[in-house]
Design a protein around this nucleic acid. Structure first.
Ligand SMILES: [Mn+2]
Ligand SMILES: [Mn+2]
Ligand SMILES: [Mn+2]
Ligand SMILES: [Mn+2]
Lengths: 221, 221
DNA sequence: GAGATTATTTTGACTCGTCAAAATATAGAG
DNA sequence: CTCTATATTTTGACGAGTCAAAATAATCTC
C-alpha cells in the first residue's frame, strides 16, 4: 500500500496537470503545493520514480506514470466521495470538509468506499463541483474553461471551485457563486487585474483574476 | 496531536487493564498486543512517559496517566462509533469492520465525530457490545464478568465479544452467540479445559476456556 | 542462595519524511 | 557569450517507529 505521503504527492501532481496530464511539474511548484521545501520534493519524487509511479528527469520535472495516475485517481475518488458524504449525510459545511477528507481519503478500504458510493446514490460530483472518478479508475476528461478567460458579455455557468480553502469557499458562498450558478460577465479590467460578474438576481461581484482563475465554468446553455 | 502509533499504544494499554485500570502492563504483554518486539514497546513507552501519557518505571510496567486515559477513551469512542456507522449505515458485516475502524479512528475530527454520533442516535454500544465512551471522555465502569468464570446451571446474557478477529466473530455468529443472546451453561470441564453452553432454541456449543474468556456476560434477569 | 531461565532494556541499524544550508545546474540579461 | 539570478539537487541532520541481537535485571528452581 502506498503511504499517506505518497498518495498526497501523486494527488498534487495530478492536480497540477489538470489542463494537460503530459505537462511536466517543476519541483518548485510541487514543493509549494505540498508545503514542503524543494529538497524534500526532490527526494520524495526520486522514491516515486523508484516505485514507477512517476516519470522523472533531473532538472526537467515530473509527471505521473499510468500506475501513478491510477493511484491518484483512487485517492481523488475517496476524497470527493468522503466530502460528499460529510456534506450530504452529516450536514457539515462545504467550506469545512476538506481537512477531514484530507485524512479520511487515506483510511478507507475499497469495499467501504463502494458502500458509501451506493449509499450516496453514485454521485458524479462533490460539493465543490469536482468530478468523482469512477471505481474503475477513470474520469471523463472535460475541457477546462476558467472564468478568468471569459470576456464581457459572456454568460457562463460555474461548474467547479478549484481552491478548497475555507476563506475562499466562504467568499464564493456569500456572493452566490456556488457551482450550478449562471453568471454574466459584466466587465473585465486588464489594467486593474479584475473582473466583474453578476449572478442572476444578485449583486455584481468584482474579483481579482487570481480568484477568477480558480472558478471553472461552461458556456451557459 | 498524538500520532497514530501513540493513539494505538494508549488504546492497547487501556484494553489490557480492563478489569483494573491501576494494574501495571508488562512490556511483554504490550509488545504482544501491539505486534511489535519488546524493545520497540520499551522505546515507545519511554516517549509516552516523556509526554506524560503514562506512568512508567523500568522493569516494573506501564499504566495510563489521566491524560493518557482521556486520549485512549477518545480513540475508543471514535473506533466504536465508526464500527457502528459501518454496520448500521453502510451494511458491512460486524466481522469485517475492525480493519477500517482501526485506521479511521485516527482520522476523524471532533466535530465530525459528534455529527456521526447524532446521525446514529447516540448509540451506547458498538456492534460487538463494547460500550461507547461519552464525548466528555467518560465511560461507566461496569464489572467485568467473563463467561469462563460461570458454573454449570448459570443462565447468562452475552454482552460483549472482546476478540475482534474475523475468524472468532464468525465462529460466534454462526453459533448464535451474539451480544444480547441468553445462554445456559450446560457443563464445565476443568480437565478438558472446555465448557458447553446452550443458547435458547439452538444447538449447544462447546468451546475452550481461552474462547470463553473472550465473552463477557451478565446474569440473565 | 546459587545458578538457570525468562523478561526487559540497550545498542546499533534501518526506512520514511522532513528541514537547513551548501553545491550545482539552468535560464535570463546584457 | 558571459555573468548573474533563480531553480534544483545534494549533503548532513533529525524524530518517529521499527527490528535484531547483545547486555542486563528479575524471577524461578532446586
Ligand atoms: Mn491527504
Ligand atoms: Mn472537493
Ligand atoms: Mn488504530
Ligand atoms: Mn468493536
Amino acid at each position: 500500500m502506498p503511504s499517506q505521503a505518497t498518495e498526497d504527492y501523486l494527488k498534487h501532481i495530478f492536480q497540477l496537470t489538470l489542463e494537460n496530464p503530459h505537462q511536466l511539474v517543476s519541483m518548485g511548484d510541487l514543493a509549494e503545493s505540498m508545503e514542503v521545501v524543494p529538497g524534500t520534493a526532490t527526494s520524495m519524487v526520486k522514491k516515486l520514480h523508484r516505485d514507477k509511479l512517476v516519470h522523472y528527469e533531473a532538472y526537467s520535472g515530473v509527471k505521473l506514470t499510468s500506475k501513478g495516475r491510477k493511484t491518484a485517481l483512487r485517492v481523488l475518488r475517496r476524497h470527493r466521495l468522503v466530502e460528499t458524504l460529510l456534506v450530504e449525510t452529516f450536514g457539515l459545511d462545504w467550506a469545512e470538509v476538506h481537512e477531514d477528507a484530507e485524512r479520511l481519503e487515506h483510511a478507507i478500504s475499497d469495499k467501504l468506499m463502494e458502500r458509501i458510493d451506493s449509499f450516496l446514490g453514485h454521485p458524479l460530483t462533490d460539493p465543490h463541483g469536482d468530478p468523482i472518478p469512477a471505481s474503475d479508475g477513470e474520469m471523463p476528461t472535460t475541457k477546462i474553461h476558467r472564468l478568468v478567460d471569459g470576456v464581457a458579455g459572456d454568460k457562463v455557468t460555474i461548474t467547479r471551485i478549484l481552491d478548497q480553502e475555507q476563506a475562499f469557499l466562504r467568499f464564493i458562498d456569500e456572493r452566490g457563486l456556488r457551482p450550478g450558478t449562471t453568471v454574466r460577465i459584466e466587465q473585465t479590467d486588464d489594467v486593474g487585474d479584475a473582473m466583474t460578474v453578476r449572478p442572476s438576481r444578485r449583486q455584481p461581484v468584482t474579483m481579482g483574476r487570481a480568484a477568477a482563475r480558480k472558478l471553472l465554468v461552461e458556456p451557459a446553455g
